[in-house]
Design a protein around this nucleic acid. Structure first.
Lengths: 352, 352
DNA sequence: TGTTAGCACTCATCAAGTTGGAGTGCTAAT
DNA sequence: ATTAGCACTCCAACTTGATGAGTGCTAACA
């Protein structure tokens, strides 16, 4: 991929670029030729380094914030680093799993916990979406609450449960309720929410006869369950971590970032983008600077991972931080998390 | 209440104090004698004002940030303002109600919407807690999902619905399930979650015989429903508004405030405090500076209102902003909201 | 030919001065 | 009791100069 560009970098240039980026990741300060001259093992004087750096700058891997400051990596530089230079750390496998499980039961809470833990571990802002299910209806139950109200419970195949209280004008006896229950279950069982179309509904109503009103209320409930899921099931944590990085916290960009986090709508669009992009074998995507789909995040890097529960059901985890984020650590975290989430959520569901 | 102090303020001093505070609320800048001399209708020279201001300062109503800056209100000054000076605005009754209702169905979403709207209306940070119900059990239903799983649905008297999937080892036939349903409903119906004590549980288990395990699972579910309610049912919005006020956004206090908002735990303690304090006839409390129960908010003012649904079920709305917040507007908003929330939520519940 | 040392230059940052305006306190005059 | 006037204080904004880090270039070197 894009080998042409990198062909131009001889080994020494690569080493220097690597050194520059690593150093900048640590300090956040522009790094000068002198520093590199000592930092690396290849014994070169600062002057030589300067020449090389001039080349690297011309090639677009690094930039000068102002004349006679040190160099900092450009987006292209980061990209090169991520694609080629970064070591695959395989550290101690984090034991997030146990910790999360022990404290939580409901899926929603697992997700919150995960976001929180990840934020605490990385010191960046994090987000996580609930798995967006190709939800199939597993079980429907109507029951009386009182004279005028019926409780409709819908269980999805992933044990997500939705319930709605339906107000009815006609009062139904238990027998018709039972009949309706059977009707609904036989008709809808195993169907995904997308598959329940007007045809199905019409047929159902017909079969329900005079109680078609109830059927259509149940449908509304289903529709809502769907939309709600697609809507705002997105949890964030550690947004304030953003303020820890001077390059972000300055200016109004910080405010915008934080509100994006609060509002969550922009994040949603990010998630969608991510799900479309998906191509890397690892399931981890890195967006650097302008590469991110969201305007307000153009000074950040965003690392996302999609996780998958069993049957094609996907969710997204994201980490938003400064461009000089600790990519290795972040990817490491995401990788372990990604592989563990399946287990966590399945356990959680069984218990929710 | 504390009439002694205010006795000392002649009418002119009051007028001046009022002018100072109003001016400061607008500008956020220390206000000087010259400004007041023009701002007010009482025609006095700046020199006279200065004398009066010196008095006011000695009495503790205003302070100087540094020598020869203007004066700003002290906490005591704000307090006086809130207690005596503030006009009761009765503006156009805000039509929040309709707007919220139309867009939302579930109680949770109503609350989120309310927080959001309030934040947008006031430009401060807002929070709202779900009404903490003296929840009575209204209806319990166990149903099969599949071989190994049972769905337990619990409906509370306010139509809050909780559900839990219970994994069982023994497989129960429909008949026993029906029996258990009847058993649970007769035993628990009408009881508040606090009233279900060990005695009730023991009795239940005894009656359930070999299925006591299921009973205790249901109890766990109930307990969790309870704790979850008491736990984190608190919605915030507009946290980033805090950054709009320079006196807050500077320094680390902003960061702390924001994290307090993210974590929500501190907010919870605030809510508890508020529910205890409750004394004012209007149900609205104002905490100025150090008066607030939470340390990190000592540079803010917090205005809270408790709302009440029918039978002693209470929730809290809070607004957090700078000390120089627009108390009139805020109180106005809270007041209308408070009276409307009852209606909103009852409607919402019926639909959730 | 690649590497290095040296030098002039640029720019950010900091401390120390400088100024101007806003505001006060006090006193004397009204 | 009120006001005008004056000396004083302090902040904020600006200038200034020194410092240091860093660069680019050139000429010398191996």
């Amino acid at each position: 991929m894009g080998d042409k560009n990198e062909q131009l970098l001889d080994e020494r240039k690569v080493k220097i670029l690597d050194a520059i980026i690593r150093n900048y990741l640590e300090t956040g300060e522009p790094v000068g030729s002198r520093t590199i001259s000592k930092y690396t093992d290849l014994n070169l004087s600062s002057a030589t380094i300067r020449n090389e750096m001039a080349d690297l700058e011309e090639l677009g891997y690094i930039v000068q914030p102002h004349t006679s400051a040190g160099r900092i990596p450009s987006d292209k530089g980061y990209r090169f680093y991520v694609d080629h230079l970064m070591k695959e750390k395989d550290r101690e496998v984090t034991e997030m799993k146990e910790f999360v499980i022990e404290k939580t039961q409901k899926m929603e809470q697992v997700l919150k916990q995960v976001a929180k833990l990840l934020a605490a571990n990385t010191n960046y802002a994090t987000m996580i979406t609930a798995p967006s299910f190709r939800n199939k209806v597993k079980f429907i139950q109507l029951s009386h609450i009182d004279e005028r109200q019926i409780l409709a419970v819908v269980v999805m195949n992933s044990n997500i449960v939705k319930n709605h209280v339906i107000s009815v004008n006609e009062s139904l006896d238990s027998e018709t309720l039972l009949k309706l229950n059977i009707l609904l279950n036989t008709a809808l069982n195993g169907l995904s929410l997308q598959e329940i179309n007007l045809g199905t509904i019409a047929r159902l109503k017909e079969q329900a006869g005079i109680h078609s009103q109830v059927v259509s209320d149940v449908m509304d409930a289903l529709a809502q369950a769907l939309s709600e899921n697609e809507d705002l099931q997105i949890y964030t944590s550690g947004a304030t971590n953003i303020l820890k990085y001077p390059e972000l916290s300055g200016s109004e960009s910080a405010t915008n970032l934080l509100s994006a986090f609060e509002e969550k709508e922009e994040l949603m669009s990010l998630v969608n983008e991510v799900l479309n992009d998906e191509e890397s074998e690892t399931g981890i995507q890195i967006y650097i600077g302008d590469e991110t789909p969201i305007r307000t995040m153009k000074d950040c890097s965003v690392v996302t991972a999609t996780y998958e529960l069993g049957d094609g059901v996907k969710g997204t985890i994201g980490i938003i931080g400064p461009k000089r984020m600790d990519y290795e650590n972040v990817m490491d975290n995401l990788k372990t998390l990604r592989s563990q989430l399946d287990g966590m959520l399945n356990k959680a569901e069984g218990d929710s």
